[in-house]
Design a binder for these strands. Structure first.
Length: 228
DNA sequence: GCGACAG
DNA sequence: ATCTTGTCGC
């Protein structure tokens, strides 16, 4: 047969050029208007790590109560790594495992917070935006470093931020989440506005550089001793 | 043409 | 991302 209907990337021919073309197409479906449940009940944090020298992709998801910020459940999905890391095409390498982890939740989250870029991406489709469009879930990206664009160093206090501009467009904010720590790169994924992406990130901070959803998923995806 | 380049 | 201990600084 030809195309695999179960593929997370419908229509993709497997090529680099094809992946970029698909990104441009999906990016047009991204909405930057706030459209998520209010009050927010739950938020899920996502991140990916690797085992066996990269041969196995390990995706982690942690569902938290939006009110208390306490974790409700967490899962880990393992899949054989299918492609190498190519700057700008991260989602084609990590999204399949992430979707697998998402499916393990007892219920869908009201919001998805992903370790990586939202629209702060060359073609406006970082992994957080890709996950949002692919699932229809509201999403935002919280990355540790910049991929595209530029910004001026934000002030030293928690909450200080500066815009990230790429080709003249505002695509996100460099946010100081904690004093003496490098700023977080925050951008909308899907159904979340630029301003709300920052507000949500601040809302889920709990004393660490990374917000709880992403911080907990990070540990589960990358620490050798993590259970589940 | 020369760098930069999420995880 | 991952390979990997201690160490400097707040």
């Amino acid at each position: 047969m030809t195309a695999d209907a179960s593929s997370p990337f419908p229509g993709w021919d497997g090529s680099i050029a094809g992946a970029r073309a698909l990104q441009a197409q999906l990016a047009a479906q991204v909405s930057l208007q706030d459209a998520f449940a209010e009050p927010l009940r739950t938020v899920a944090g996502f991140d990916v790590g690797f085992e066996d020298q990269g041969e196995t992709t390990r995706a982690a998801v942690v569902l938290l109560d939006a009110g208390t910020r306490q974790p409700l459940e967490s899962h880990v999905a393992r899949l054989p790594t299918s492609m190498p890391y190519v700057p700008g095409l991260l989602s084609f390498r990590e999204l399949p495992a992430l979707l697998q982890a998402l499916a393990m939740l007892s219920r869908p989250p009201d919001l998805a917070m992903v370790d990586g870029q939202g629209i702060a991406h060359p073609r406006r489709l970082g992994i957080a935006a890709h996950l949002g469009v692919a699932t229809g879930l509201p999403s935002l990206g919280v990355a540790k470093t910049l991929l595209a664009g530029r910004f001026d160093e934000p002030g030293p206090e928690r909450g200080d931020r500066n815009p990230i501009l790429h080709r003249g467009e505002l695509v996100g904010y460099a946010l100081r989440s904690k004093p003496r720590c490098n700023p977080l790169i925050v951008s909308p994924g899907h159904r979340v506005s630029l301003e709300t992406a920052v507000a949500l990130t601040l809302r889920f901070l709990a004393g660490y550089r990374l917000p709880e959803p992403t911080r907990l998923a990070d540990r589960l995806a990358s620490r050798r001793d993590a259970a589940a």
